[in-house]
Design a protein around this nucleic acid. Structure first.
Length: 109
DNA sequence: ACCATGACGTTTC
DNA sequence: CGAAACGCCATGG
């Protein structure tokens, strides 16, 4: 893709996502709000789409939309990879939706 | 510089 | 209560 010389919006997103603890998830909105633009949730998703370009591996499977729906699962290597990873971390998922979502929801510092 | 796109969110019908 | 439209803003062409 490209080589961001300075810290871009995307890198800010990567930093937040990288801080998500094991077995927890967060939403695009929370990340966007942490950055300073509560309305930029779309940019967060866009950044995640390019997470593979980042120097580190981003646990994008721990990022879901505000209702705990695995909206981005289709963007993974395989459509069922995201759910598989989350279940592997102890998160129960039913019909692409995280159960007990608010219970495992993690908010950025 | 302008137009099109998007892994979302909120408001409105 | 469910679906659709609008808004939002960074990145790419």
């Amino acid at each position: 893709m490209k080589e961001p010389k300075n810290l871009t919006f995307s890198e800010k997103v990567y930093e937040i996502v990288a801080q998500i603890p094991y077995g927890r998830v967060t939403t695009y909105g929370h990340i966007a709000r942490k950055i300073g633009s509560p309305q930029s949730a779309r940019m967060v998703g866009w950044a995640m789409n390019h997470s593979h370009s980042y120097k580190k591996e981003i646990p994008a499977h721990r990022v879901v939309n505000r209702v705990g729906l695995l909206t981005g699962k289709a963007h993974f290597a395989t459509p069922d990879l995201m759910q598989k990873l989350l279940e592997k971390e102890g998160i129960e998922i039913k019909d692409n939706q995280i159960q007990d979502f608010k219970n495992i929801l993690w908010s950025p510092e």
